[in-house]
Design a protein around this nucleic acid. Structure first.
Length: 467
RNA sequence: GGGUCUAUGGGCUAGCCUGGUAUACUUGCGGCUUUGGGAGCCGCUGACUCCGGUUCGAAUCCGGAUAGACCCA
């Protein structure tokens, strides 16, 4: 197997997805792939974390219907303009043509908000904080890629309603905290950029894009947080009665991240040997490889099974690889599949009361005592998580390059002065085949000139080629 | 949005130009031997994307559909 992550990222990515068996692309609809068990376990582990975080911050899980009546879908003008060209339509039921066509949800604002209008009556009903983990559908015309650009998208979306704009803003801040907790487990670095006016979510007041750098220098959007103000509450008539008996529109936010997180994890952590999974989401956190030889098979297997049971009882996701293969072959397999920690146990180890371990993230090896294996394994997994996280951040920090002219633009994340006008923004994008990612959410000191018009500016913007 | 290329067992692939018997490797299944970094031998299962055309005969030639890869906007 020859994999070259740094030089042929695109090929490398496809090869990893196929060989590690994360997804089966052979389903005969473009952009709709089958989640195979290993890939789905990873996604489910991510979902589990999302549930934990959202539940802990007072969100309730719900599940809305997949189909949305055209009449509801079209209530918010900008929203429909943004999604018109990429939704699937249900036009028939059996042999009959439908009077009101149905949209297969591309996102659930227009499904939820008519119900919100019924649910929210009083200021005591607020804040309303709900989320769902479902699949959505968008008709992508561009080239598709497993997890990164698909037509059926597995994602979570949280929707909140608040009394005031300030309350809604506080929700956005809470979302950043949830994001931070989640990314620590997935070991993925990210930047927070306020999207340009022409790139914000259709119908939003503002959008914060969450981006992470891929090895080919391009930025991958892994999620977004939107502040809607009352932009949806007005057309959907979501109002509450305040303490003074006055009826007011709610202020709303949404937050969403998708299966792209899996794509980001592959891209950020993988290497030429295959996947590298963060311990929190790895379907198998540690694999035990028995080293057998003639005459000691039973003794070693017995010890290996005991080790497996001990670790499993301690709550670790452990697998004993008892296939009739040579150890080397098993090493390659599990490295390809990204298992964070490998334990080897043979006669030599048993005689010394130890287990040999090998870390997937940095390749380091050593031994741990058989007696306190569960604690030792937990410590190593924790170290793997921390090292993966900080290593990934170090890499991302160096990834943005400040440029002052549009000559010889490098293929990476770009930082530059921007006067803020749409005209300059569009020209920058069109002339250089780049996508503006936006301006920093957390303001950055800047003193320079707009890269297009040359006007003095203290505003800085980011851009990159899109994936 | 525009263009180029591709489609053969589960995976990878030979054959296509010049029409007639489909090749190797790998996976899977069974067996023997092996096991501290991709083991070896034997046996078995398993394929020409779909629709139409040309032809006595099509994986091969022609047209279309579908799916995939890449390039440009």
């Amino acid at each position: 197997m020859i994999m070259r992550k740094e030089t042929d990222f695109s090929e490398w990515y496809n090869e990893i997805v196929e060989k590690a068996n994360l997804s089966d692309k052979r389903y005969p609809i473009k952009g709709m792939n089958v989640w195979t068990p290993y890939g789905w376990k990873i996604m489910s582990n991510i979902d589990r974390f999302i549930r934990k975080e959202l539940d802990a911050t007072g969100h309730d899980e719900v599940c809305f219907p997949l189909l949305i009546p055209e009449t509801e879908f079209k209530k918010e003008k900008d929203h429909i303009k943004g999604f018109d060209s990429e939704v699937y339509w249900v036009t028939h039921a059996g042999l009959n043509e439908l009077d009101v066509r149905l949209v297969v949800r591309p996102t659930s604002e227009t499904a939820m908000y008519p119900m919100f209008s019924l649910w929210v009556r009083s200021h005591t009903d607020l804040p309303l904080k709900i989320y769902q983990i479902v699949n959505t559908f968008r008709y992508e015309t561009k080239q598709t890629r497993s997890f990164i650009r698909v037509r059926e998208i597995h994602f979570f979306e949280s929707h909140t309603c608040h009394v005031t704009e300030e309350d809604a803003q506080r929700q956005v801040e809470e979302d950043f905290e949830i994001l931070s907790n989640l990314m620590k487990e997935l070991c993925i670095p990210y930047s927070l950029l306020v999207r340009t006016e022409w790139d914000k979510f259709p119908g939003a007041y503002y959008t914060v894009g969450l981006d992470t750098a891929m090895p080919n220098g391009r930025m991958l959007q892994i999620g977004s947080i939107h502040h809607y103000r009352t932009n949806f509450a007005v057309p959907y008539n979501i109002t509450y009665e305040d303490a003074d008996g006055e009826h007011k529109h709610v202020h709303q936010t949404t937050y969403g991240m998708s299966e792209r997180l899996v794509g980001a994890m592959i891209g950020v952590h993988g290497d030429d040997k295959g996947l590298v999974l963060p311990p929190a989401v790895a379907p198998v956190q540690t694999v035990i490889i028995p080293i057998l030889s003639k005459g000691n098979t039973d003794a070693v297997m017995k010890e290996a099974e005991r080790l497996r049971d001990t670790l499993a009882n301690a709550g670790l996701r452990v697998k004993l690889d008892d296939r009739d293969e040579r150890p080397g072959s098993k090493f390659f397999d599990w490295e390809l599949k990204g298992v964070p920690l490998r334990l080897e146990i043979g006669m030599r180890d048993i005689e010394n009361n130890v287990v040999t371990f090998a870390r997937r993230d940095d390749g380091s090896k050593g031994t741990i005592s058989l007696h306190d294996a569960p604690d030792a394994v937990r410590v190593i997994l924790g170290a793997i998580r921390n090292d993966m996280y900080s290593k990934a951040w170090d890499k991302q920090k160096g990834c943005a390059e400040t440029i002052t002219s549009t000559d010889n633009i490098p293929d990476k994340m770009l930082r530059f002065g921007w006067c803020g006008s749409e005209e300059c923004g569009h020209r920058f994008e069109d002339d250089n085949d780049l996508k503006m990612l936006g301006t920093p959410y957390i303001p950055e000191e800047f003193d320079g000139t707009c890269i297009i018009c040359g006007k003095r500016t203290d505003k800085v913007a980011y851009a990159s080629r899109s994936m």
